[in-house]
Amino acid sequence: MNPGNKNSDVIICRCRDVTEEDIIEAIRDGYDTIELLKRKTKVATGTCGGRTCLPLVRAILARETGKSPDRIPLPKERSPVVPLPIRFVAGERGNSDDH
């Protein structure tokens, strides 16, 4: 992905601190779908909801398994679309410092 660096230097998921090496090791241990990788490595379970890392994870999976990226399904997107302070949902008026 970044030929100048070692895999262990390349952060794929910055929310959960998952490196390219973590992903490759997990794939080699048989966690060969995005759903399984999420469960094994925590990738894509952080605050950004996988928006940053999922395309990278898909690219690594495609490279490691030889599958075409469009045959690697992405996980279901969950509500809320952006992380939402609980008091907003509970009906309390919020302050702007939550954004």
Binding site: T47, G49, S79, P80, L84, I86
Partner: peptide, 8 residues
């Protein structure tokens, strides 16, 4: 109250 809900 201040925690942010991530997934549901």
């Amino acid at each position: 109250k201040h925690a942010r809900m991530l997934r549901h």
